[in-house]
């Protein structure tokens, strides 16, 4: 009798645990299910009172064409969803590549190379990590706002204020200014340098044993080759983590694009979605379909790179 008791207790405990976990899981997923359910409803079904929430969840008619309709409805807004997707992907890829590259190079310098002023510079990097984004955002905005005026003084032969177009397969597309407000430059370049990324990679590089590099030096390897053939391959986990975090962060980036963009054609997805909401504020099925399309790539990246996420969070917390 007593022998079984412990086992029964374990089973009950497991059952209760699963119940709790399942309940919390439902709480987490319910909003997403609501999003999915709304996104396939006909417009008339959205504004209907249902006698109970379960009926409200199950669409009476499933309208997958809401998704292509998001493209059609927004097309007049500077190209709409397709264009915003393109902008988001473009900016996120360029920023991620730039940030990982410049951070890795700087981190190598800080971790392995001796030069006058190194530690003071590193301290300066650390000190700025605590400064609220709003502090730097204001002068950076002013820079973007005024840079075309300043460049016109310096180099008057170029029309800095003009919006450019590019031709692809005989069709022309708006490409914004070269620099300043409403430019890809403003969207991408200021975001390409990260003190945090440098810090994180430096900590990781420091944990790599030096023996390999010493052996390579004796074999006559230069510093650049050591960097590319030893340090980088050994730091794949940290680089993968930084890549994923930077990409995701940029995909969701909102504040900076909001202040440097005015043209619909230059907008990234979060901004595009916002203007879409401004124009179609009651079309909840279309708005939810748009939101779904925006977050879906993130869910996929997350599911694929989950391992790097979890280890990355723990890596980031080591500074604490």
């Amino acid at each position: 009798m007593r022998v079984f008791r412990k086992q029964d207790e374990m089973t009950v405990k497991k059952l209760v645990t699963y119940l709790v976990l399942g309940f919390v899981g439902l709480f987490m997923l319910l909003p997403f299910l609501w999003m999915l359910s709304t996104s396939v409803k006909p417009a008339s079904d959205v504004f209907t009172s249902f006698e109970n929430p379960i009926k409200a969840f199950v669409p009476r008619e499933t309208q997958w064409r809401n998704f292509p309709r998001v493209y059609d409805t927004t097309r007049a807004m500077g190209g709409g969803f397709a264009r915003w997707y393109l902008n988001s992907v473009l900016v996120a890829v360029v920023v991620t590549l730039g940030q990982v590259t410049t951070s890795a190079c700087a981190a190598y310098a800080f971790a392995r190379l001796r030069f006058p002023g190194r530690d003071k510079l590193f301290l300066g990097y650390l000190a700025t990590m605590m400064i609220p984004g709003a502090v730097t955002m204001i002068p950076n905005f002013i820079l973007m706002r005024k840079i075309t005026e300043w460049l016109t003084v310096v180099a008057p032969m170029v029309d800095w204020d003009a919006s450019r177009v590019v031709s692809v397969f005989g069709r022309t597309y708006d490409a914004g200014r070269l620099v300043g407000l409403d430019s890809y430059f403003a969207l991408a370049v200021p975001a390409m340098f990260s003190a945090y990324g440098t810090f994180m990679l430096r900590q990781y590089f420091l944990s790599i044993p030096r023996d390999l590099e010493e052996a390579a030096t004796i074999d006559g390897c230069g510093l650049f080759r050591i960097f590319t053939t030893i340090i980088l391959p050994l730091s794949k986990p940290a680089l993968a983590t930084l890549t994923i975090f930077t990409f995701m962060g940029n995909w969701q980036s909102f504040y900076w694009p909001l202040i440097v963009l005015t043209q619909d054609s230059m907008k990234t997805l979060p901004l595009g979605l916002l203007s879409f909401m401004g124009l179609y504020s009651t079309q909840w099925s279309l708005l939810m379909a748009g939101s779904m399309m925006m977050i879906l790539p993130m869910i996929i990246v997350f599911l694929v790179g989950q391992k790097w996420f979890i280890s990355g969070i723990q890596l980031g917390a080591l500074k604490g």
């Binding site: 919390v24 899981g25 987490m28 997923l29 909003p31 997403f32 609501w34 999003m35 709304t38 995701m248 969701q252 909102f254 997805l269 979060p270 979605l273 916002l274 909401m277 909840w284 708005l287 939810m288 748009g290 939101s291 779904m292 925006m294 977050i295 993130m298 869910i299 997350f302 599911l303 989950q306 996420f309």
Partner: peptide
């Protein structure tokens, strides 16, 4: 993964969702 999902996708998309 389920619990982590909201913090991953938090942004304009989920704010719109909660508005609804």
């Amino acid at each position: 993964a389920m619990y982590f999902l909201p913090s991953i996708v938090a942004g304009v998309g989920t704010y719109l969702l909660w508005r609804w």
